Each structure stands twice: as structure tokens, then as C-alpha cells.
Amino acid sequence: MTIPLHVLVTGATGRTGAIVVQKLQQRPGEFIVQGFARSEAKVRELFGTTDGFYLGDICNPDGLKVALEGCDALVILTSAIPQMKAPPQPGQRPEFIYPEGGTPEQVDYQGQVNQIDAARAAGVKHIVLVGSMGGTHEQHPLNRMANGNILIWKRRAEADLIKSGIDYTIIRSGGLQDQPGGQRELLVGKDDEWLAHPPEGIPTAIPRSDVAEVVVQALRAPSARNKAFDLISKPADTPGAVVTEDFHALFEQTTPGL
């Protein structure tokens, strides 16, 4: 009998993180999943119980150490979240800030480094890190938002993960959509090549559920180990598109390194 993989998912109450947790919970023979989140209320709202969850802050390495004990794999889905300062007046652009202690440098860099260091100390064998495309484009709108350079900090953490010696899978998604998954052809790329030249002119976007499925499949497939890639999908109504079902073949198209 195969021994289930023990997985910790951080950012487990986020909009993508919650889907990852649910998908792993649906495979009890393959995975023992635990979530890590800050808000007990949000855990209860989404899952109805705190069983199987650790409550903590990724900026506190001690909490991560406890949560990672006995884990085989770690899925990192944490991210800084900008907040609108005030509703804009008609004709004005909205202004954003990051809350105290929640800047991209603190969350997307140091918080992820904390997770990587704690995982290495715990003997974790594989880290799946979900990031975003745009880390090579300093002027990307998300980098300019509140002058946080969020995608640049994310990419710095990705480089640290590669240097850590732990097997990694780095998934840089396009724009996330709240649409059903499992209905599209997925495409993998590298180095933000699609931001300037989208393949076949398609939008650089993807449903959250499809990103979550790629996370689950990356935990299962040896061909996803030590790979980093951009991830988007063709629109569901694209003529000639073939819904992605062979994830081994998808991961075979990806390459190591940033």
C-alpha cells in the first residue's frame, strides 16, 4: 500500500489556496493535507472546522517549525495583499497601500524565505511555490502598485528556493480567474515571454481551479521536480484547443532554473 504524502499548504484560506486544500482532501489515499493560515474565523468559514489546520504567521518561524514537523512537501500560496486607501472620486485613480507588517518584502520575500528555511530544517523533500508572471518586468502594474515591487520580491524568493537544495516546482500563473477548471488547454512558458507576445494572441490568464490542479499534479509527478514555468490557458471556446489531461506531458515541456 502506498503511504500518503504529508503536505502542508500555507495561505490555505486564500482564494487559490482553499481550492488546493480541497483538491488534496479529495485524494485521501494519496495525501494527508494540513493547512496553515492566520485567521481562525476564516478557516471555520471556509472549512467548517479548524481540524487539520495550524494557525500562525509566516513571519514567525517558530509557528512554521511546528506545522512542518513530519511533512514530506510544502505548498506555498502566501502573498502580500494591497488595500485601497479610500474609494476614488469620479475620474480619480484608486490609491493602494500595504498594511503594516504586510509589505511584499516582508511577506513575499522574507515570509517565503522563512518557509523555505523551516522546510529545509524539517527535512521536507519538495516545495511547490505558486507565484505570478511579471517578475522580470520592473514596470509591471503590480510592481508599481503602492511601489511594492511585489513580483520582483516574489522572484527573489524563487531564486532562494532554487538555491536551497530542496526539490522545487515554481508555478508563475497569469491573471487568475474565478471560472471553472478542467475545461481548457494549459500552456507553459518561461521568463514572462508571453507578457509582450501572448501565444496566438490569447489572454495571459488562467482559472484558479486550473492552477490548483497543476499544484496537485506537481506533487504527484516526478517530471515536475526542479522546474519553474509560467502558466496560462487558452479560453474555453478556443477552436481546436485540447483540454489538458496529461500533466506529465505538460511538465515535460518545462525546464529547470528561474
Rank of each mutant, 00 (worst) to 15 (best):
T2D: 09
T2S: 09
P4S: 00
V7N: 04
A12N: 02
T16K: 01
T16G: 15
T16W: 03
A18K: 05
E30V: 12
F31I: 14
Q34C: 11
A37C: 07
S39N: 07
R44Q: 08
E45C: 14
C59K: 07
A67I: 03
E69W: 00
A73F: 03
G91R: 00
P94M: 04
E95S: 08
F96T: 04
Y98H: 04
P99T: 03
G101Q: 06
G102E: 13
T103I: 10
P104N: 02
E105M: 14
V107W: 08
Y109S: 01
Q110Y: 13
Q110G: 01
I116W: 12
R120V: 08
A121M: 14
A121E: 15
H126D: 12
I127S: 00
V128G: 03
L129Q: 13
V130A: 12
G131T: 10
G135F: 09
G135D: 12
E138G: 02
I152V: 07
R156S: 11
E158G: 01
A159D: 13
A159W: 15
D160T: 14
L161T: 05
L161I: 07
I162D: 07
K163R: 06
S164Y: 09
Y168V: 01
S173G: 15
S173Q: 12
Q179F: 00
E185Q: 11
V188R: 05
W194Q: 05
P198V: 07
A205W: 03
R208Y: 05
V215L: 04
V215N: 07
V216L: 06
A221L: 05
A221H: 12
S223V: 07
A224P: 07
S233F: 00
K234F: 01
P239W: 06
A241F: 03
F247L: 15
F251N: 06
L258Y: 12
